[in-house]
Computed example of a mutant assay.
Amino acid sequence: MPPTLVTVAVGVLLGVALLGAAFDRKSMAVVVAAAALPDLDALLSLWIHGATNAALHTLFVPLAAGAVLYYDTSREESWLRSRYGWYGVRIAWVAVAVYAVAGIGLDLFNIQSAAVLYPVSNRYFAIVGKLVLSTQEGVVQTYVEFGDGWLVAATQGTTESRHMASWVNPTPGTSNPPGVDRQVHLVDSGWQLVVVAAAAAILPARALVERRGR
């Protein structure tokens, strides 16, 4: 699965793009937290077998948050709007988007996969493939395939049969034996390093633009 640093970097890029006038240190702190939060299910795996990339990577979390947020903000007496105004509403919606796209999406669109229907289903899903423009075959894509009339998604086992190793819980099960090798992955490839560098550069650049605009 992509390292948390990369997930946060994508969240930063989304936050800078979506926050608009709500961009500041507090709003970016919320965005960073929203991007990193799904990876905390690795901690839960110390008590819940197979929780990594499942317990907090389920799509039911952002769907539920979005439903509650829509219900509240659609009322005349919105609790969030009355307490934090448009600023709070914008941050809340961006945080939900970042949670879904950066926090869950990066793992779903990756061979490492995510159990996005947990706990209804404990199966890991991965959307992987390619999109090619061929002079002989035309458009060739393998992301969306159908079998027996149904959408087919690659599966990588279940939370019972597959262990998602992390530095918190590198070994299968919940015993977490002492002395085991633990590796904290910061970046795993060149493109990830580019994303992290871009996020690190865009924050001070956006802050400078904000100061000059005032």
Rank of each mutant, 00 (worst) to 15 (best):
M1H: 00
P2T: 01
P3K: 05
L5Y: 11
T7A: 11
A9Y: 08
V10D: 01
G15P: 04
L18K: 11
L18C: 13
L19F: 02
L19R: 03
G20F: 08
F23I: 02
R25N: 10
M28H: 11
M28S: 07
A29P: 03
V30P: 02
A33H: 03
A33D: 04
A36C: 09
A36N: 11
A36M: 14
A36G: 05
P38I: 04
D39V: 06
D39H: 01
L40A: 11
D41K: 04
D41Y: 02
L44G: 10
L44E: 04
L44D: 03
S45L: 07
L46R: 14
W47E: 07
W47G: 12
I48Q: 11
G50W: 12
A51S: 14
T52R: 06
N53C: 01
L56N: 13
H57K: 02
L59V: 14
F60Q: 15
A64F: 12
A67N: 09
A67C: 12
V68F: 15
V68Q: 11
L69R: 13
Y70T: 15
Y71W: 15
D72M: 09
D72H: 04
R75E: 14
E76T: 14
E77Y: 09
L80H: 01
L80C: 00
S82R: 15
G85N: 07
W86Y: 08
Y87N: 10
V89Y: 03
V94L: 05
V98T: 13
A100I: 08
V101H: 06
I104C: 10
I104F: 06
L106T: 14
L106Q: 02
L106V: 03
D107T: 00
L108E: 06
L108G: 06
S113K: 00
S113P: 02
A115T: 03
V116P: 07
V116Y: 06
L117S: 10
Y118H: 15
P119L: 08
Y124S: 05
I127V: 15
K130R: 08
L131F: 14
E137D: 15
V140W: 04
Q141F: 10
E145I: 02
E145M: 12
D148P: 00
G149F: 10
G149V: 07
L151Q: 04
V152W: 06
Q156S: 06
Q156C: 01
T158F: 07
S161D: 10
R162L: 12
H163V: 05
H163R: 09
M164E: 00
A165T: 05
S166L: 08
T171I: 08
P172C: 05
G173D: 06
G173I: 02
T174F: 08
N176S: 08
G179L: 02
G179F: 10
V180F: 03
R182F: 03
Q183W: 14
V184S: 01
L186Q: 07
D188R: 12
S189Q: 10
S189L: 05
V194A: 13
V196H: 07
A198D: 01
A201T: 09
A201F: 06
I202A: 07
L203F: 12
L208D: 11
L208F: 09
E210D: 12
R211T: 15
R211N: 13
G213V: 13
G213N: 14
G213A: 15
